[in-house]
């Protein structure tokens, strides 16, 4: 019997060596180790053995079983590994093909810039006010110290609807409305963004419709040095810590003193380039101390409070920021233009 067991072992091990696929392996397991398999068949004859022989043969039987099982397991592992390898090989894809992106739309560049400007001022403690785009002559001009026939009205050629109603030429009327709504209370600290309209032939740098952001601060003891401090803080947040400002005396009917503000050229950092016409500076906003007449008409006593105001064109900043060469792109809405702004 022992010989038969040994013969089984060598037969099994030999056949297992030849096995080529997991199905065959399974067949051999059934053939040798199954309930009706060869090993069971041999061991069934144990009943005719003597009491001394029985444990000896039993042990040999276990050894043979163990030896066969080890080989089967090894084979199984090999097949598993092969199967995995095959699967991985089959599943290999071209990773250089483009992925399937979720679609991305762009915030319009003018709004993108306006939001950025608003956020800077919100961070500086300003609230944001809005007002109508169609305005009365009073709010757009008269309350801003621009009486009828004032030569400074030439500076802003307007679209009138009637003698008394027009498209606002700046967002300053919102400042007047804010002052009136505040009813003499201080402090006033607002930003007024919005569309404005001026009679201008459209070209690369002019548009009859454009966007402004204006600011107004009124409180006791507001000084021109505060205006400079505010603007410096603003440009450094907007254009970087290295940005400086330069004020030049100018004229606006609603401020006195008035100034134009230049900022260090964003392109060359002040060294001089084509963008800044070699000056190192770019004109970006107008500002001044609120004219006492404007304070009075807004319901404030110029002997009690003072204030400053400033304003800038959103298009101008967007042109500079993105290096856009033609203001008309903003209103043509070519998707090839817009899609360039679908990112941080």
């Amino acid at each position: 019997m022992k010989e038969r067991l040994e013969a089984l072992r060598s037969e099994a091990l030999q056949e297992l060596q030849q096995v080529a696929d997991p199905g065959q392996l399974n067949e051999l397991r059934v053939k040798f180790l199954g309930k009706k398999g060869a090993l069971t068949e041999i061991l069934r004859g144990m009943g005719s053995l003597s009491a001394e022989e029985r444990p000896v043969i039993g042990q040999v039987g276990n050894e043979v079983r163990g030896a066969i099982e080890v080989v089967i397991e090894e084979k199984q592992l090999i097949f598993q590994r092969q199967e995995t390898e095959n699967r991985l090989r089959e599943e290999t894809i071209d990773v250089t093909l483009p992925g399937t992106k979720p679609a991305a739309g762009a915030v319009h560049p003018l709004n993108k810039v306006a939001q950025e400007l608003e956020d800077v001022f919100i961070g500086m403690g300003y609230t944001i006010a809005e007002g109508p785009e169609v305005e009365t002559d009073f709010f757009n001009f008269e309350a801003l110290n621009l009486p009828k026939n004032h030569p400074a009205r030439d500076m802003q050629d307007s679209f009138y609807v009637t003698d008394d109603i027009l498209m606002r030429t700046h967002t300053s009327p919102v400042q007047v409305r804010t002052m009136k709504a505040m009813n003499g209370k201080t402090p006033v600290k607002v930003i007024c963004p919005g569309k404005v309209y001026r009679r201008d032939d459209d070209d690369a740098t002019h548009s009859f419709q454009f966007n402004q952001i204006e600011g107004l601060v009124i409180d006791k003891n507001i000084r021109m040095s505060d205006l400079k401090g505010t603007l410096l803080q603003f440009v450094q947040q907007m254009f970087g810590k290295q940005a400086q400002i330069r004020l030049r005396p100018s004229f606006f009917p609603f401020t006195e003193p008035s100034a134009e503000v230049d900022v260090t050229c964003v392109q060359c950092g002040g060294d001089g380039c084509r963008m800044c016409k070699q000056t190192g500076w770019l004109e970006i906003l107008g500002c001044g101390m609120v004219h006492p007449r404007v304070l009075e008409m807004g319901g404030y006593d110029p002997n009690e409070v003072s204030g400053f105001a400033f304003g800038m064109g959103v298009e101008r900043i967007a042109l500079l920021k993105y290096g856009i060469d033609d203001i008309r792109h903003f209103y043509t809405n070519d998707l090839r233009f817009l899609s360039q702004f679908a990112r941080m």
Binding site: G123, T127, A129, E130, K189, N221, S225, K228
Partner: peptide
């Protein structure tokens, strides 16, 4: 030559409407 100063007085919270 005009100095650069921060606004004095109480600070105000900024916000969108």
């Amino acid at each position: 030559n005009i100095p650069t100063t921060p606004i004095e007085g109480a600070s105000t919270p900024g916000s969108l409407t």
